[in-house]
Design a protein around this nucleic acid. Structure first.
Length: 427
DNA sequence: TCTGGGGTCCTAGGACCC
DNA sequence: TCTGGGGTCCTAGGACCC
């Protein structure tokens, strides 16, 4: 049996942990650039705040009901996430039985716990996590990951009745649950597949489970579709996965705080994103061989598109993989010159590093001269200082000083658990 | 009128996830 | 005026090989 443990309104719960006055009160957390709402407490949901609603649209409602608003505080969420996952690993007694799936979710391998004990086991996990970390979670238990996600969906949907734990151990329980669940709420069914399915008159998870595997293969992304149908039928087709040692791609992309027309501003932003991406690269001891850059212009014709114009991107394959910021900034900034068009207004840009390899296996560059040996030392020193002091004490000149394009983040709480200067104070 | 049968590797793009 | 950011997996199709 497998379980999925999912933190309830994670970002909101994290904010409330240090603001006990907000318990039982409506809270929302915004995406980067304070763009849209990415987490809502139950109270905020009940007041009608939509998921992923643009902040400016939800604002009247927020003011009307005095809902508390926070900008994203990823230092805080990252640290609390780690505490939750550590608790799960401790409870399972074996880290390999816990697969961290996202910042607020983990799959757990419950092994052969007898059916009648599953609910109590899950409840014990739920209560321990809450007691040790202050974060409340919901748990779905079933023979496959997809059914566990479905169980979790039902647990969250009716917290009072389920106490945030749903077990789908028998086939009868699974069928009943699937009949109650719309196909759009199945894990792995997104917008495109949902449209196809509904056109065919398939509206419930159960109906999807009765589709022939061959149909799923031909219409829902090949093996992905086959696996999905099998999982709904209780046949495990997605194993527990080993923790990913290192990422296969690293991206840093941001909306601009205000739209940008000047190429130098874009270059500064790209240089800054490249520095950030290179930090991530070094943290996982990788080096990148491919760097790509994209910029997104604002749509000129507002009638046609409410969002953005066509993204333009291009990439360069480097002669040798590298993890040093200055070697990456140069090609990145060059790419901007090829993409930028005079007279256009841009609203977003990003850098992606790919072709990643372990940094100890970088092929020696035949033409390397003395100073290159010290690159790594220099980078390590920069990373250490930037981490222990405040962000970006040390940076490359290409990143700029004024940074008019920097994203908005006006309502961020303190980084209570990761910065000494921002510790919680008790008077 | 006729035009093999395998392979591999790479990239772009679609779909999904939280 | 204002709509996020960071990932993964899979497939199709082209280039190239013998």
């Amino acid at each position: 049996m497998k379980a999925i443990v999912d933190c309830n309104s994670f970002y909101c719960s994290a904010e409330r942990l240090f603001r006990p006055d907000l318990q039982q009160k409506p809270v929302v957390v915004l995406s980067n650039n304070d763009g849209c709402i990415v987490s809502r407490s139950d109270e905020a949901k009940a007041l009608g705040v939509g998921m992923a609603a643009p902040y400016f649209e939800a604002r009247p409602l927020i003011l009307q009901h005095n809902i508390s608003v926070f900008s994203s505080n990823y230092n805080l969420y990252g640290d609390l996430s780690w505490r939750v996952m550590e608790t799960l690993r401790h409870l399972m007694g074996d880290a390999s039985k816990v697969e961290v799936y996202s910042v607020d979710e983990a799959f757990i391998d419950l092994g052969d716990i007898p059916y009648e004990s599953l609910f109590d086991a899950a409840m014990n996990i739920r209560k321990t996590v809450e007691q040790w970390t202050g974060i409340s979670v919901s748990i779905g238990v079933a023979p496959t990951k997809t059914l566990a996600k479905l169980a979790n969906y039902l647990a969250k949907k009716n917290k009072a009745a389920t106490q945030c734990v749903t077990v789908l151990a028998t086939r009868e329980e699974q069928v009943t649950a699937m009949k109650q669940t719309r196909v759009t709420n199945v894990w792995g069914v997104g917008g495109a597949y949902a449209k196809k399915l509904i056109n065919l008159g398939i509206t419930s998870a159960w109906e999807l489970s009765t589709m022939p595997e061959e149909w799923a293969h031909n219409n829902m992304g090949g093996v992905v579709g086959t696996r999905l149908v099998r999982e709904l039928n209780g046949l495990p087709s997605r194993d527990m996965e080993k923790p990913l040692v290192s990422k296969k791609m690293i991206a840093t992309t941001r909306m601009f705080g205000t739209p940008v027309t000047n190429i130098n501003d874009i270059k500064e932003a790209i240089a800054t994103y490249t520095s950030r991406a290179a930090e991530k690269l070094r943290r996982q001891h990788s080096a990148a061989k491919v760097i790509s850059v994209f910029i997104v212009p604002r749509e000129q014709n507002y009638e046609v598109s409410f969002r953005r114009g066509a993204t333009v991107s291009s990439h360069i394959t480097l002669p040798a993989a590298t993890s040093s910021t200055n070697e990456l900034i140069k090609p990145a900034v060059q790419l901007v010159e090829g993409l930028y068009e005079q007279g256009k207004t841009y609203k977003k840009a990003g850098v992606m590093l790919a072709g990643l390899e372990p940094d100890e296996s970088i092929q020696g560059n035949l033409f390397a001269t003395g100073p290159q040996k010290y690159q790594r030392l220099l980078m390590d020193m920069m990373d250490n200082i930037n981490f222990s002091m405040r962000d970006d004490v040390l940076k490359f000149a290409a990143s700029g000083l004024a940074r008019d394009w920097k994203m908005r983040q006006e309502l961020r709480s303190k980084r209570y658990t990761t910065r000494w200067e921002e510790l919680y104070e008790v008077r």
